[in-house]
Design a protein around this nucleic acid. Structure first.
Length: 490
RNA sequence: GGCGGCGUAGCCAAGUGGUAAGGCACUGGUCUGCAAAACCAUGAUUCAGCGGUUCAAAUCCGCUCGCCGCCUCCA
């Protein structure tokens, strides 16, 4: 069974059949770099990071192209406000974008072309469109003539007459048809400009992706992706440009992810309800954000809240705690000549983790189910660990450690469990401790005091120390190797 | 007005024709001097509502209600 992906164009799941055997060409629309990225951008980057990792895990070679829009009205306006050049502003936020991506552990795409480095390719494409009668010059601008492309609207499921009925489109007398969109704009004084056959100007937004995808991936490629808000007009217009020019399907399948919402409203600059990636990462571990994002299918809306992030934290901690327990176990002494004690049922659960994982991920990258499978495995491992004798049998130990390694590998497709479990848990502890009015030395001293009290069977004093610590946010945990501690609620 | 999506336990969330995954929270139990963690057990006779198709529906069809998105820049 090949991987199935939901195709926006056909509105159904379809088998993913690469144009070239074992190779996937993927183009994703990246950011317009004029500000810090918010967690909606993080969802986009993480969704495609996961998709690319999964495809590679499944044995495909993936060429992943993600562009930067580094020339655009918003960039020009913001640069003017700040008194810097458009290119300096764009570069600055590309650098900031990388800071965020690195922090999130997002793998770099194969290629990251920038619009301003492909002006000539865009001019060539516009020339071809004019020659084919699909574009026309009007004043200092060049427009795409949507009526010349009969399939216009096929990606977003609209048609020209419907759109014009409720159009919120500013009248532009340069256009033949109100739905025509700009390919090249003559520049106003002081704006960045490039020479062209139509005079000095700059490219329209949509043409860059048609030009760059064509240059790096050819006339047709496997997957084109982006956020759901790009379906119309951006991707619709790309289709019109590329297919109008080449006469071939631009992409075999279209993958669009859902939005991040806050209180069920789309996060957006105009509503002012957005959180930047760095806002969130200042408070939560990057993998918590990943866990949160992958706990819902990529096409569904995802509502950000503190409660949801706390849930995600609890879930991730549970996975890491299990990994830490497995690491501890590997130091255990083996009982010679012991036979395995793990039940056939549990053993079967663990040996089928990977096939179950693949089955659900093959079905349109269902990370929510994939996580459920990992939890199921963790539960089984915890159960086994609980029943294991102090000196376990080699066979049982092998099963657990290999399952642990497998869980890490599969979680790694989502960029989870990348840290050493002990390091993660210790780091978490020290980070949390910073917010409390207590330090580790003090905690350890109190634990020692309590140990002395308990040794003297002074339970009252022992309990009072524990309660005192609890009141300050520290929970104690008495185990076989003594007393350990953790931050309350974590 | 046009197009699309969603509505599943207290919360989050899978499941798209065969009898409701998983996580968080809660409760009872095991363990513990008492706790914590972990484990075990328990929770929707039911999937917004109403009607229909079917041997069988959360899943398909119709209608109603509620929420959201796109149609303007947007991940």
């Amino acid at each position: 069974m090949p991987i199935q992906t939901y195709n926006t164009l056909s509105r159904k799941k379809e088998p993913l059949v690469p144009l070239t055997k074992n190779h996937i060409n993927l183009y994703v629309c990246g950011i317009t770099s004029y500000d810090y990225c918010h967690i909606g951008h993080a969802r986009s980057a993480l969704a495609f990071d996961m998709i690319v990792r999964y495809l590679r895990y499944r044995g495909y070679t993936v060429t992943y192209v993600r562009n930067f829009t580094d020339i655009d009205d918003k960039i020009i306006n913001r640069a003017a406000e700040q008194g810097v050049s458009a290119s300096a502003l764009a570069q600055r936020f590309i650098d900031e974008f990388y800071v965020d991506m690195d922090h999130l552990g997002v793998d770099r795409p194969t290629l990251e072309p920038r619009a301003t480095e492909h002006i000539q390719e865009m001019i060539d494409l516009i020339d071809e469109l004019i020659a084919k009668g699909l574009a026309y010059q009007s004043g200092t601008d060049v427009y795409y003539a949507v009526t010349g492309f009969p399939e216009y609207g096929k990606l977003s499921g609209r048609n020209l007459s419907d759109m014009q009925a409720g159009a919120r489109i500013a009248i532009n007398e340069n256009k033949t048809n109100p739905m025509d969109f700009v390919l090249w704009k003559g520049s106003k004084p002081g704006e960045p400009t490039w020479d062209s056959p139509w005079g000095p100007g700059r490219p329209g937004w949509h043409i860059e992706c048609s030009a760059m995808s064509r240059k790096y991936l050819g006339d047709s490629f496997d997957i084109h992706g982006g956020g759901q808000d790009l379906v119309f007009p951006h991707h619709e217009n790309e289709v019109a440009q590329s297919e109008g020019c080449c006469g071939k399907p631009l992409a075999n399948t279209w993958i669009h992810h859902g939005f991040v919402t806050i209180r069920d409203e789309k996060m957006s600059k105009s509503l002012g309800n957005f959180l930047t990636i760095r806002d969130v990462l200042a408070q939560y571990h990057p993998e918590v954000l990943r866990f949160f994002i992958f706990s819902t299918h990529y096409r569904n809306p995802l509502d950000f809240s503190e409660a949801a992030m706390m849930d995600a934290t609890a879930g991730l901690d549970r996975l890491y705690q299990c990994m830490a327990a497995i690491d501890d176990l590997s130091a255990a002494e083996i009982a010679e000549n012991s036979t395995a004690t793990v039940s056939a049922k549990d053993s079967h659960k663990l040996t089928t983790i990977e096939e179950r994982f693949q089955k659900v991920m093959d079905d349109d990258f269902n990370t929510a189910q994939a996580l459920a499978i990992l939890f199921d495995a963790v539960k089984t491992i915890n159960k086994i660990c609980q029943q294991l004798p102090v000196r376990p049998a080699q066979a049982d130990l092998n099963l657990i450690t290999s399952s642990g390694a497998l869980i890490k590998k599969l979680a790694g497709v989502m960029g989870l469990l990348k840290e050493d479990a002990r390091t993660y848990l210790l780091h978490k502890k020290s980070t949390l401790l910073e917010d409390l009015d207590i330090n580790e030395a003090e905690i350890l001293q109190l634990i020692q005091d309590r140990k002395d009290a308990r040794a003297a069977k002074d339970w009252t004093r022992g309990d009072s120390i524990r309660d005192q610590l609890l009141a300050r946010g520290i929970e104690l945990k008495d185990g076989a190797e003594g007393t350990s501690w953790q931050i309350k609620g974590h």
